[in-house]
Design a protein around this nucleic acid. Sequence first.
DNA 1: TTGACTCAACATCCTTTGCTACAA
DNA 2: TTGTAGGTTTCCATGTTGAGTCA
Length: 449
Amino acid sequence: MLTLTFEDGTVRVGGLAESDVSAADLPGVAWDDRGLVARAPAYRYADLRASLDERGLDYEDRIRPETNLNLSHAYDLRDYQRGALDAWHANDERGVLELPTGAGKTVVAVAAIAALGGSTLIVVPTVDLLNQWRRELETEFDISVGQFGGGEQTQEAITVSTYDSAYLRADDVGGDFEFVVFDEVHHLGGEGYRDVARLLTAPARLGLTATFERPDGAHEVIADLVGPKVYDLSVDDLAGDHLAEYEVRRIEVDLTPAERERYEEAQGTFVDYLKTSNLSFRSGSDYQKLVMRSGTDPRAREALLAKQRARRIMMNADQKVETLGRILDRHCDDRVIVFTAHTDLVYRLSERYLLPAITSETAASDRRELLERFRDGTYSRVVTANVLDEGVDVPDANVAVLLAGSGSEREFTQRLGRVLRPKTDGGAAILYELVSAETAEERVAQRRR
DNA sequence: TTGACTCAACATCCTTTGCTACAA
DNA sequence: TTGTAGGTTTCCATGTTGAGTCA
């Protein structure tokens, strides 16, 4: 009789001889020469069981954690949340839900956890989210919730973990959970993080994100490890109903003559190099190629540095700073979040307009205090680079100003999401997008939309 | 317990021209 | 004939995070 045991992030298949492995043709199972035993990657556990059941083979499963937590929750699911949950159930409790920020992804996950009632691991990208999830689950289920990360290592039937800690602990505890929820599941596409999903046996898997597709195509890896996208709604599907109506106002600003001269010089250096270097240039991977070349070719390095100078000039243009002043005057009674791409501009704006600033350099305690004051209304404005894009509980605002950003659709969606919570007065949110005219930034802005 | 530090990991970084191999 | 996808194997800079270490 075969036995299935969890061992160091794999399923050990006892009772299968080396000579039988290829004939058996079991999902993911291969012979391990070092351990002299047949093994499958942990994430193939569900397939393996299904295959054994299908063939009527007798086996002893020593992995499956038997828990019946008998959980209930007080949420009344909205129609689309119910639809998302049903779609996930219909796909054998595997798959990704793509819902905009503020649509209540956590609510769906809590309902899924209650429905399955088994041991569950929730994986999140930041300690901030870890704390939020833990509070939410303890309140909703009235049980003690375990935590991996943020200086604590406690395991319970329901445990919340950071991606980093999950990676560090998965070898030990990867066989202990029936269900795993990946919050902000797009992170799972990262080379290191995807191992978290590989090292867990959990048959039931749920991914949550506002933007599933990745520019590097790694969402296909996620679909393999967690399941395909089974339900999606865009911001526009919910705007006016469950999210605020919104308007995007694009403002073009001109570079000053001095900025224009410096920009053209730097951009010219970059484009000239491309023309003479025989490099094709169509995608991000072509850019990678240039980066690699810059390690050995001084001209490539100079071209790359020139491109960065050009970016800095167009993203931090003087006219953007002036325009921001007029926007702040116009919205003196509103709650405004200002986003930039570089921290030095954050501090420049902070000094110029007396705006509270948050960057990665801001100490955690200062950040908490600042956001608390933004929440209680002491502050009505805040300026930041990328810190508040994701993984932080940011108080609601109704005006966002994008002074600069990358071409990432994800970044744009996350920043827009910061102003989309329904307003008490029913008013619309406004997102200002400042773009330097006749620069590469026009393309960047196009790409993120 | 806290704060300062280091380290590793992740994400973005993007132009308009040609070439080759291969599938429909 | 036409349309489209393709290979590299390490890493210029900046911003951000979590974990670990040490005082």
